[in-house]
Design a protein around this nucleic acid. Structure first.
Lengths: 192, 192
DNA sequence: TTAAGTGGAGACCGATCTGTCTACCTGGGG
DNA sequence: CCCCAGGTAGACAGATCGGTCTCCACTTAA
């Protein structure tokens, strides 16, 4: 299965940087040093390869964020660590994750715009998982269920907004600014 | 120039719905009922046509948002009107703007990922203009310059975040939630 | 040594891509 | 009535698309 992983990794890098529809299968196999037959023995179609890259990035990104938040000393720091991680990502200080070209799931959703498309659904799924991760931390800090939901969604929205600002406008401080807003929202509800 | 406008409008709808690289020139001219030669007499290349659609959408979207905010009775309502407009957009209650397929500028930036690419720059330009519009309203409400900048950027980030949540996850209430967060930030700084 | 299987290189298929060019049609002003 | 500008239809070129298939070199195991 090592060859398959290599293929997915190369395909992801190309799709992420240049866009899915801008990269042909020939480019992928050339870059991976693999025969076309090999690719099609692992994936039934280009779309299946795209789906694999989304899954690959989902696991990679989620594991990375989870690692960054779990190493925080307490739950509040864990939420701040999320934004610190984003800041490292935007400013290319993070080797575990690839160079920043926006959020792959947002980018892929732009190319597979139909919400019902299975690849778009994979992206939605990733975002739901990220919201779940945030919610787990927030629910350790607050007991009121409505507060937990509202805060978690707000933090998720700030994360997406910061990612867009960083990519579209090139605002490298977007994560720091989003962190400050998140802190304000958290402080306003400090449980005592 | 009427034919040119028709071409841009049709191209925009296709690019917006299906993505720029997924739509060929032949599809555009077929849908517009125009000869290929006519297209190339108005635009030197596909990329020039794409640039025209970004400009078209920029003017259209900005005028729409400006109209919605300017008809508000006061400056605070103007900011709320921004999120009400987004809500109408996400839920397809707005005829002036096309059916919702995410933010065209985010989508196009995903396909032209290089920040230095002229088309990406057009998208950044639009976002800067939107931030400027928000800042104009916020600066009527607060006198402290730092407060104005922080708040304006926060509102812009909430707007982008809500748009992403609505598109990727299909969260139709994203604008309402973002509005509530924006209101909280504004209230916390109420000038008195 | 030989048989089986895997993967690399790349020819090939039909479709489609961007972009050019020819040929024909049509309507309005001299 | 003629001319010509501007439009249509669409052939065409050269490249590339996704996907299939053949051929051959190499490895591994009996």
């Amino acid at each position: 299965m090592e060859r398959r992983e290599q293929l997915v990794s190369v395909a992801f890098e190309l799709f992420y940087r240049y866009g899915v529809h801008a990269i042909g299968i020939n480019r992928v196999i050339a870059e991976a040093g693999v025969a076309k037959k090999t690719l099609y023995s692992h994936f039934s179609s280009k779309e299946a390869l795209v789906a694999a890259t989304v899954d690959y990035r989902d696991r990679q990104f989620f594991a990375w964020i989870e690692g960054r938040t779990q190493s925080a000393p307490d739950e509040l720091s864990a939420l701040y660590a999320l934004f610190d991680a984003l800041d490292d990502w935007f400013n290319e200080r993070e080797k575990l994750i690839h160079a920043f070209h926006g959020c792959y799931f947002i980018n892929v959703s732009a190319e597979f715009g139909d919400l019902n498309h299975p690849i778009h659904q994979q992206c939605a799924s990733h975002k739901r998982a990220m919201l779940g991760l945030i919610t787990r931390h927030v629910s350790q800090l607050f007991s009121d269920e409505k507060t937990v939901i509202t805060l978690s969604e707000a933090i998720a929205t700030l994360k997406e907004g910061a990612t867009v600002q960083a990519h579209v406008m090139g605002d490298l401080k977007a994560a720091v600014k989003a962190k400050a807003i998140a802190a304000e929202l958290l402080n306003a509800r400090e449980e005592h």
